[in-house]
């Protein structure tokens, strides 16, 4: 690229003052609030569909899995609950960013003096927030259906934001990196399907290669952390829960950083 620059000293001195940049946190808050408000307009896809899907899966699985504490029941309830997070934060967010990028909607943000991280983190945080009611409703319904204790449900207050960060970071990165909208949609769907199959089914029955795939899926660690607490606080191996949540957090940091880079690349060509 050849660049012609003729900035003479007097012209440089005459350069107009630049308007201030928007700060990281204020603009993150503004993006978060704006995105959150979309739930009023797009209530059904953002809040209800994932919950219906997860509750439906649990009702179906109730036909083949016995109620009462056991690996299968825990897997179904924890997997279905985290599936809500995967559906919204991974699948829908990948589609959202894919669509924004394909339609030129990113231009709106790219022509404002806003840090890329504010846009990505604000949007990801909003999508993670959309999953809160659905995940809680699914977990409660699951505990009732499968006769599991609800005393450990508070752990969802950690699982949702951390798994939400990991999965929304991944969703945002997929949506922004996919060369076409269709591919962003496809990747989001595949990620969600993987979270469904590998999260809901009990891991001990899986063939080894499938288990490996399960191990590299970030949602698995959210499922594991929640599943460990479903036997009640006395029977919970807390260090393992902390370990699972740490994996979610680490994946969250990495994937959100990747998504921010992807946004920067997508916004200015």
């Amino acid at each position: 690229m050849s660049v012609v620059t003729q900035t003479s000293p007097e012209r440089a001195a005459a350069a107009a003052p630049l308007a201030p940049r928007a700060g990281l946190w204020p603009s993150l808050a503004a993006v978060y609030r704006a995105q959150l408000s979309r739930a009023r307009v797009a209530r059904i896809p953002l809040l209800f569909v994932a919950t219906f899907q997860s509750v439906g899966i649990m009702v179906m699985m109730r036909g083949v899995v016995h109620a009462g504490d056991g690996e299968a029941a825990r897997s179904v309830v924890a997997g279905s609950s985290v599936l809500v997070v995967a559906f919204v934060a991974l699948n829908l967010l990948a589609q959202y960013f894919g669509q924004l990028r394909a339609s030129g909607g990113l231009d709106h943000y790219a022509t404002l003096p806003v840090p890329p991280a504010s846009v990505v983190l604000g949007t990801a945080a909003a999508y993670a927030s959309f999953t809160v009611p659905g995940t809680l409703v699914t977990a409660l319904t699951g505990c009732v259906l499968f006769h599991l204790t609800v005393s450990g449900l508070w752990v969802l207050l950690l699982v949702i934001p951390l798994a939400g960060a990991a999965l929304s970071g991944l969703g945002a990165a997929l949506g922004l990196l996919a060369p076409r909208l269709e591919i962003a949609t496809l990747l989001g769907q595949l990620g969600m399907s993987a979270a469904l199959l590998l999260g809901v089914l009990p891991p001990s029955h899986m063939p080894a290669p499938v288990g490996w795939v399960r191990d590299v899926l970030p949602s698995t660690y959210g499922v594991e952390a929640f599943a460990r607490t479903l036997g009640g606080p006395g029977a919970t191996h807390w260090p393992a829960v902390a370990g699972d949540l740490s994996v979610c957090a680490a994946v969250g940091v990495l994937s959100l950083a990747l998504a921010t880079r992807a946004y920067r690349r997508a916004a200015c060509r």
């Binding site: 201030p20 503004a30 307009v41 797009a42 924004l100 339609s103 231009d107 709106h108 404002l112 003096p113």
Partner: peptide
């Protein structure tokens, strides 16, 4: 800048679209 696309704003109310944009302008 006013571009041709409004997809980033479509699901916001008019008031919030304007206010958010103002905040993102600092």
């Amino acid at each position: 800048y006013l571009g041709q696309e409004s997809t980033a704003l479509d699901e916001l109310t008019v008031a919030l679209a304007v206010e958010t944009t103002a905040r993102l302008r600092g």
